[in-house]
Design a protein around this nucleic acid. Structure first.
Lengths: 120, 120
DNA sequence: TACCGTTATTCAAAAAAAAGCATAATGAAA
DNA sequence: TTTCATTATGCTTTTTTTTGAATAACGGTA
């Protein structure tokens, strides 16, 4: 019989920049969706985030690095569009690596937990 | 010249039990203060948490393990008191170890970040 | 030039989370 | 038996966080 872990080590990570939050799960997912859909609005809709918040995230992220992570154009065919830059792609990749290592860390630590649950 | 890291890997961890959140920073600090001060109310005051929330945390934690982490007595000299059990002490210790390893993980990952800040 | 859907922005509304207040119960000690 | 500060609990208020509505600007394209 395999032991089941009713207790689990859990957590969240993010990357802070010079002025606070830079990259986290929400922002990275947003970047991925923008890359996939070519639009901030569609990306926000796809992940059930308000456009308001999505737009603010993009603004904030773009101010942190020398080069923007997202370039958005207003007007034109379709009303406008947004594309992920080289820097944006790198940022996504680095965060994913970081998170991969973190998930392994959590999994290994979960095995060391020795708490005994009340009854269920 | 020493390189300064304007970007930092950051995060938070916690331990989930069978029914959700079990131990996190706030709860562990609360347990430590209870151990130190012998009172839920004083512990809450010391960390500027409302007694209401502190009390609820204790209730929740006590329902998770077979044995309670905190034993609280009402009435008597001083109106009552609360003491940390063996299980409570172990829980604090395990979380602190977990967090120690996590902080090392974050520190080592921070060194690998290669983002270039905008100007400052 | 008129149209289109998105970007960009403000401001009010709603939802969620936390805090604060009030009060009963408790039981050792004086 | 009176006192005392705390535990225990419900309920209201406040604060914080999110969301939603409303609107101007934009510029390729037909």
């Amino acid at each position: 019989m395999k032991k089941q872990h009713t207790f689990k080590a859990n957590g969240r990570i993010w990357i802070d920049g010079p002025d606070g939050a830079f990259l986290g799960y929400g922002r990275v997912e947003l970047l991925e969706k923008i890359h996939e859909l070519g639009s901030i609005r569609k990306a926000a809709l796809a992940m059930k985030m308000s456009y308001r918040q999505a737009w603010e995230f993009v603004q904030q992220m773009n101010q942190v690095l020398k080069k923007p992570l997202v370039v958005a154009n207003t007007g034109g065919k379709g009303g406008g569009q947004a594309v992920l830059t080289e820097e944006g792609l790198k940022a996504v990749e680095q965060f994913r690596e970081f998170n991969g290592a973190f998930q392994e860390f959590l999994a290994s630590y979960s095995k060391e937990l020795t708490f005994k649950p009340s009854s269920k």
